[in-house]
Nucleic acid binder design. Sequence first.
DNA 1: TCTCAGATTAACT
DNA 2: GTTAATCTGAGAC
Length: 189
Amino acid sequence: MNDLLRQSSEIVAPALLGWRLVRTLEGKQLAGMIVETEAYDQADAASHSYKGMTARTRVMFGEPGHAYVYFTYGMHYCVNVVTGRKGRGSGVLIRALEPLEGIESMRQFRKIDNVGSLTNGPAKLCQALAIDKAFNGHKLSEPPLQLMPPLDNRSLNIKSSTRIGISRDTHRLWRFYVKGNAYVSHPKH
DNA sequence: TCTCAGATTAACT
DNA sequence: GTTAATCTGAGAC
């Protein structure tokens, strides 16, 4: 896993599709399959790490395999998997999950019933899995939040596009998602 | 189905 | 003082 995560974010981002994010909470497991990601890098003006290490982005420049959790729009958290060797400010934003386990808990955290809206966005999935700033810097090989390889070897139909919600370096095709999956945030993008 | 304004605050200039 | 890797509900069509 670390061999993969040491690679550049644009390599890691599509490779993480099909992996699972597993949250352990009060004896329960909440799990989802990653179906949408985006790559960010320090050489990329859309990245938080573009202007160098700051208090917020310190984790992005640290060990691969840790979580970079940021707070945005005054109310939302989003989670990244830190990639690249230590010193490289890069990461992969987890944009959507297909719920696998603990759906009732996700419904409670999200305060909605519709399964289709539980985890089809970067802030939605953080709310569904109760991920907040306390997870910034957390090592993702350990509970209570773990990144785990796919359960099977089924191949996925992967599509790429421009990234969502950015205003700079908008041309890069650094968003990756599972084509046809019902939990992708912007299916037609 | 789609478009758009409002929410709400930490981080950075 | 400005911006933001977003989400939601309301109103248009």
